[in-house]
């Protein structure tokens, strides 16, 4: 089942913009390796789920996959062959706002080579260009 919030304050939202870079959720926090988005985009709940399934089928219950984004934005879409007007359309799907730099998924418990291959499978399901990253230096 695609993810979505359990309770919301308002049924529909304005579109907003994603002109800035991610300044939170932009480093590997829970796993050993991560997949970082390099472009802004809405990532739908179905795409997030497809990525999770792709990684878990590949890992065969070996490692742990952490999803760092949540689809909390309702995206509305007018039905086909509908005239303009008559108010805002119904919600079509839920999406996560992804800014450049956001960590999308993290993987732990597997060697780097396996993590790279699993994350590249996820990257193919994503609507954005992604790259493989490791943990940051810390003091």
């Amino acid at each position: 089942m695609p993810r979505m919030p359990k309770r919301v304050k308002f049924r529909k939202q304005m579109r907003g913009n994603m002109k800035t870079r991610a300044n939170r959720g932009n480093y590997v926090a829970f796993g050993d390796y991560g997949l970082q988005a390099l472009e802004p985009h809405w990532v739908s709940a179905r795409q997030i789920e497809a990525g999770r399934i792709a990684a878990q089928h590949f890992l065969r219950r070996e490692g742990k996959v952490v999803i760092r984004i949540f689809p909390d934005k309702p995206i509305s879409k007018k039905p086909l062959e509908t005239r303009m007007g008559k108010g805002k359309a119904d919600v079509d799907y839920w999406a996560a706002r992804v800014k450049p730099g956001t960590i999308l998924y993290e993987i732990s418990g597997v060697p780097e080579e396996i993590a790279k291959r699993a994350l590249s499978r996820i990257a193919r399901k994503m609507p954005v260009r992604c790259r493989f990253v490791g943990k940051r230096l810390s003091v």
Partner: peptide, 19 residues
């Protein structure tokens, strides 16, 4: 781990609106 069994009516499900 399986994660492929999806609810048929899952897309129709909508969250509760608090307001």
């Amino acid at each position: 781990a399986e994660g492929e069994e999806t609810d048929v009516n899952a897309d129709d499900a909508q969250p509760e609106v608090i307001t």
